[in-house]
């Protein structure tokens, strides 16, 4: 095994160990109603709640992180993430629309069991618009993609606010909590199964495209000249990133920074090769989301469980600034 291979193996082992620690902590940390923290294996009658939260956290973390890797390869921009292209907001708008329609038609509970579908529809609709408007000279232009993504994201954000305004006040709290990101301990099995299957297959497919993503780091003409079908690769990356983001948003709402920070953490450990980077970023995403979920079990400010989005933003925001200041955010 050469030096790069040893670095990949060492990095993956470190990430597996950290992910295991985060997972075990999520299962054994116990907080009683008085707020006392203890480490104990959960009683069988509510152990499934913690296993569900762990499964949701792992699915969401790995999905968003993998999506981030794909978009950063697509745009040749290490600061790209699902949120930048409006995919997160599009998926959230899909879920919000389903919630609103469910409320208007008297089927309030129906949206939760099928929320992957509206999230996917919202994400794909936004991606279709962004894709069409980002064509320059018959090609997907990465710079236009970012600009159009930001604008479409803003429009979707405005539509979400409109829907929030239209729903009755009783639903406001539920919507607000969902928009801040949450890791539910009870979620429809079908949603979790669909999102989990999407995450697992997405990681496998993305890993298999690792060499192609390596070649795509070259300029367009150069990448084609070494034998890469760049147009087909970009469509695959785009669709896969959208599906993974939709699955994550459907489960937990829009959670920021995971798709940006996890790929960078993995790159610091393993380097730029995409084949090992994809599973490594997925592990880093699991560590970030499950670790944040552990933190919100432990930290109690007297107002109930905090939304997980607060933790990922508090970690991700400074990390984003660090990337900018150190130049690691440049290609």
């Amino acid at each position: 095994m050469n030096g790069a291979g040893r670095r990949h193996l060492r990095g993956l082992l470190i990430l597996v160990c950290l992910a295991t620690v985060a997972a075990v902590l999520r299962i054994v940390i116990d907080r009683d109603p008085e707020g006392h923290i203890a480490l104990a294996w959960p009683k069988p009658e509510y152990a499934w709640l913690r296993w569900t939260a762990l499964a949701v956290g792992a699915t969401v973390g790995s999905s968003l992180a993998t999506s981030g890797v794909l978009l950063q390869a697509l745009l040749r921009n290490p600061l790209a993430s699902p949120a930048i292209l409006g995919i997160t907001t599009g998926a959230a708008l899909g879920v919000m629309t389903a919630m609103y329609v469910g409320h208007v038609t008297g089927m309030d509970s129906a949206w939760t069991s099928t929320s992957v579908t509206p999230a996917l529809a919202g994400a794909l609709a936004v991606m279709g618009v962004v894709y069409m408007l980002s064509q320059r000279r018959g090609r997907l232009d990465p710079v236009s993609l970012v600009l159009v993504g930001v604008i479409v994201s803003a429009v979707c954000g405005a539509l979400i606010m409109l829907l929030q305004h239209l729903v009755p006040s009783g639903l406001h709290g539920e919507i607000l909590r969902w928009m801040m990101g949450r890791i539910p301990e009870a979620t429809p099995a079908m949603s979790l199964a669909v999102a989990g299957a999407m995450a697992a297959s997405g990681i496998v497919i993305a890993t298999s495209m690792g060499r192609a993503m390596d070649a795509a780091t070259l300029g367009d003409d150069e990448a084609r000249s070494v034998g890469l079908s760049l147009g087909a690769l970009r469509i695959w990356l785009f669709l896969l990133a959208g599906a993974l983001t939709a699955g994550a948003v459907a489960l937990c709402g829009p959670i920021g920074f995971v798709g940006l920070i996890a790929p960078h953490a993995a790159r610091l450990l393993l380097g730029p090769h995409h084949t090992p980077l994809v599973p490594a970023a997925a592990l880093a995403g699991i560590i970030l989301v499950v670790g944040s979920d552990v933190a919100r079990q432990v930290i109690d400010l007297g107002a109930g469980r905090m939304p997980i989005g607060i933790f990922t933003a508090l970690i991700g925001g400074p990390a984003f600034i660090w990337l900018l200041l150190t130049g690691r955010g440049q290609a």
Binding site: R76, T217, L218, G219, D221, E222, S225, R267, P272, A331
Partner: peptide, 14 residues
């Protein structure tokens, strides 16, 4: 065909 472009670009720390 092998091709050398006018401006080299590799958007990763290879």
């Amino acid at each position: 065909i092998a091709y050398v472009p006018q401006r080299p670009l590799v958007a990763a720390a290879f």
